[in-house]
Design a protein around this nucleic acid. Sequence first.
DNA 1: CCCGTTTTCACCCTTTCGGGTGATGGACGC
DNA 2: GCGTCCATCACCCGAAAGGGTGAAAACGGG
Lengths: 152, 152
Amino acid sequence: MPRRNSLGNLLQPAALRFAALTGLVLALGAAALSWVSLQHSVRLIPTELYAIAIAIFFAVLGGWAGHSLTARRPETRVFSRNDAAMASLGVTVREYEVLTHIAGGRTNKEIARKLGVSPNTIKSQAASLFGKLGAARRIDAIRKARALSLIP
Amino acid sequence: MPRRNSLGNLLQPAALRFAALTGLVLALGAAALSWVSLQHSVRLIPTELYAIAIAIFFAVLGGWAGHSLTARRPETRVFSRNDAAMASLGVTVREYEVLTHIAGGRTNKEIARKLGVSPNTIKSQAASLFGKLGAARRIDAIRKARALSLIP
DNA sequence: CCCGTTTTCACCCTTTCGGGTGATGGACGC
DNA sequence: GCGTCCATCACCCGAAAGGGTGAAAACGGG
């Protein structure tokens, strides 16, 4: 899975666009300031140049930071399990384990082998799970569990 | 699907607002600085504190801008069917119809009644669909179809 | 009109699923 | 200790699903 680091973020189109825009705006602002200074016969003193340089630098830095912290790539979408719904339904840990395997498309026999128990056990736990979810078939169980954010 | 390019981003309301606000703030800040410098020949605040204040202000401003420009709103998640994958797999229209009903959690008998055909027909079409998807069970078919963006 | 594809349906069979009931052992709290 | 919950397993039975084969219509393009 390709993870993006800071350097990668810096080179992203959005970051480049932002940097270009910031630079353009600040250049325009500086030009406006120069124009104003010339109109009023006032010299730009070094302190102002200093302040402008600091402003530009930290504006760019802040912009990059805001982008890096906020930009969310689609593939890094994390799923947060709805433990509250699980608790209110009374779904046990073992039943949830069975649920994940059911959602994974495995048969009861496969789940039984994977968990090292009898297929009859899986059947019992699946039946109990279906009752708690109000599902008649395993596809219903998957759909309802997804609707409740029990599984991705 | 509306694709965003660089120009489109630059012309977005958020970007325009940011550009205008940045320019305005910079101009005002510069004006205030000039005014203060001219009014008091004596510096009221130490230069370092002054620079730090500017740095903080513009860092925050830049951070807000970066956030605004790149934050992904909980956007309208529209599903676009992958017709190319459907065509390459040779999935027929009828098979796709059966697929949607399978994904809807319906049994073959229910699908048959809904489509007004024999359950045997649904079985045949489902079997053909499974072959094309490389799925052994209907849950596998749903998973692979979702992976191929054939269904939401 | 002919040929290929699609759609439709039937019959066989095995596997999987789901419902129901009952039973045992362990953990936990009162 | 006792009741409760959980996990485990077994059996029976019917329904659903899936695999395989075959074949009759319908449909569309060359």
